[in-house]
């Protein structure tokens, strides 16, 4: 449980008032500072204006739905986001991750699980190690959580940063998906889960191809992913 001095703040956006209130109680007892809003637009404004450490976002929201909030948020912020979905459709989960959510949790869920995932994601988001990693034209700074390609800075979400970090620690070597999941999501992958693949695919999109047209991160079937080092320009 985090100590009082390091209490981290969570923004919950869910139109189910009772659920929001109970979650606030539970997470509050777990050591988080929690604020609950019930509408997508107010949630987005709160996320952009105040300094929350993470956001728990429901998909079905009145007015502006969760996906729209996430898209608008990602245009300006890389704040960690966990999506909640009650419709239980695979597409909802994929869409959420593709829009840049760090993780998702289907309703109904155990609040203990939500707390654990929040902690995992925030641990990733917190500056930890000192120093920098570089692979080819890519540079990653642990402390400032900056990634740059040929000197140009790239915005990554916490999960994407964590995936890239792990890949850059072992450039040219296959990193297993399970390892990436433990590192980036702080948990084991569930059967058939494709969260890591979605994060990698977004990461590929942000990094762009190498000079020879090949993807920087390549899939090794049944094993994981490998970062290809290009020649420094």
């Amino acid at each position: 449980m985090p100590s009082m001095e390091t209490r981290q703040s969570i923004l919950i956006v869910d139109d189910d008032r009772e659920l929001g209130q109970m979650l606030a109680e539970y997470l509050g007892a777990d050591g988080w500072r929690v604020e609950v809003v019930h509408e997508g637009r107010t949630g987005l404004n709160a996320a952009l204006e105040d300094t929350f450490d993470a956001m728990v976002l429901d998909v079905m929201l009145p007015g502006m739905n969760g996906f729209e909030v996430l898209r608008a948020l990602r245009a300006r912020s890389t704040m960690p986001v966990i999506m909640l979905t009650a419709r239980g459709e695979e597409t909802d989960r994929i869409v959420g991750l593709e829009l840049g959510a760090d993780d998702y949790l289907p309703k109904p869920f155990n609040p203990r699980e939500l707390s654990a995932r929040l902690r995992a994601i925030l641990r990733r988001a917190r500056p930890g190690l000192e120093g920098r990693l570089s692979a080819g034209s890519l540079t990653l700074e642990h402390a400032s959580r900056q990634v740059s390609l040929d000197g140009e800075s790239i915005d990554l979400t916490a999960a994407e940063f964590a995936v890239l970090e792990k890949l850059m620690e072992n450039p040219g070597e296959v990193v297993h998906k399970e390892l990436l999941a433990r590192h980036a999501l702080g948990r084991e992958l569930q059967p058939f889960e494709r969260s890591i693949d979605t994060h990698v695919s977004r990461l590929r999109g942000k990094l762009g191809p190498m000079a020879n047209g090949e993807a920087r991160i390549q899939a090794v079937r049944g094993r994981g992913y490998v970062l290809i080092e290009d020649d420094r320009a």
């Binding site: 079905m60 419709r87 109904p108």
Partner: peptide, 23 residues
């Protein structure tokens, strides 16, 4: 989809309330 959402919403509340009661 709607039915699934409508049924899961009270279930989500139940599970959180259960965790709160248990702890």
């Amino acid at each position: 989809r709607d039915v699934s959402h409508e049924l899961r919403s009270p279930l989500a509340r139940l599970q959180v309330a259960l965790a709160l009661a248990a702890e």
